[in-house]
Design a protein around this nucleic acid. Sequence first.
RNA 1: GGCGGGGUAGCCAAGUGGUAAGGCAGGGCUCUGCAAAAGCUCUAUCGCCGGUUCGAUUCCGGCCCUCGCCUCCA
Length: 473
Amino acid sequence: MGLRVFNTLSRSVEPFVPLDPAGKKVGLYCCGPTVHDFAHIGNFRTFVFADVVRRYLALRGFDVRHVMNITDVEDKIIRRVNESGKSLSEYTTEYEKAFFNDLEALGCLMPDERPHATEFIGPIIKLIKKLEENGIAYRAGDGSVYFSIEKYREAGNRYGQLLNLNLEEMRPGKRVSSDEYEKESIADFALWKARVPEDGEVFWDSPWGEGRPGWHIECSAMSMELLGPSFDLHLGGEDLVFPHHEDEIAQSEGACLQCDGRKFVKYWMHGAHLLVEGKKMSKSLGNFFTLRDLLAKGSAGREVRYLMISAHYRETFNFTLDNLAGANTALGRIDECAAKLRELALGQAAEPTTDSPLITRFTEVMDDDLNVSAAWAAVFDWVRDTNRKLDSDELTAGIAATELANWEHINSVLGIEPIEEEAPPEILALAEERQAARKAKDFAQSDQIRDQLAAQGWVVEDTPKGPRVKRGT
RNA sequence: GGCGGGGUAGCCAAGUGGUAAGGCAGGGCUCUGCAAAAGCUCUAUCGCCGGUUCGAUUCCGGCCCUCGCCUCCA
């Protein structure tokens, strides 16, 4: 059995078979952040999810090309740019930098491509022109260009592939009724927005005059430009299913760059949102967190990551500060176990044994639509089992090296950076001094030294083989 | 109003037609000069009510609660 994933297109779990005839290359696109502010932990759940997908595909032997776009032009950004008096790029660069810092702190691998919307104005225009040629895009009185869902349907396409849509029954929301765009139908969406005074200096020339791209078209243009008109995986948060992803399909398939029977995207995967303390994050509830908020409270990025991938990606996850505090303990057990194996292995190198229970079980549950919860259960069962063997001296250096390699193999997916720090000489000297005091049964002295070490952030453990010093409180 | 997820121990969270993984927190024990670490061990009848079944937490129906989407949104 190979990897199986839930595809939003079919609303079912399907075997994952890449488009590449050789079954090797996989194109993966994940809608990235809009850099108008610091991203919050809810945003990051999606990006960590994408990172796990990418890493697991790699472990499964696929050659993944991971693309994550940066939306660096849209309404909110333009408003803030005008308020701040900065230029567009001055403004967005700051948040983009913060975003990638946070992404790294969360143990995410850098996406292979990180395209900016503003760098793809050419391909965006080209795509809109194609839609115009196909009679699916039209110009409105205000100079903007819209996508006509009616024309798209008349051309034999289906609008509403990712969800059941009943446009006639749609309840017009506040935003729609107050909408002053001159579009023909309420469901139509902007491909190109004509320049208005509020846009300030943010605009580009186009065949339709000065303006800027609509939001949905950016992703269609960037993904197809970098991954081709038909690619394997498109990820994003569940809220993007409609309209963003549905519109991406419409634009891309409406442009007919893959009208040879292929689809724009073969598998759509959506990550569920997270709640904080059982509630939707909101500033007034005091449960709105960015990653830097949590780091400032003393959490480590890997603890946040662990929590984010402790639950299945399709389930709403309840993020609590209590559980975040416990993540440190849980990860510490893994560190501890790995550190003991490392000591025992004495630097001996080993290859992972793919038939080990740990790897077999891990792969089996991850193949089943990425059941990370079950994967963690496999990890912790392995930790307990390994500790037991360690305690009873059952492991040889060679086996320890292999077990360590096995863990590192699956950790290439979990992405939990080990915390390891060599104790500096003065700390080791103190530990030796304490050991001497213990030998002399001067426990008052040895305990005093232990407190001294603790004050400097080091914990000393007395094992049958002598004292061990490690980081801790 | 339409559509779609959920409700499993103090918290988080897997899973299954044959009485329930894992993590955190908590209790007991072993080890230890004391600790720490580690190990062992204890703590749930799976929202409510019916139905199907030899047997349901798992299937069906109803109800209650909760979350999301319905053109800002990860």
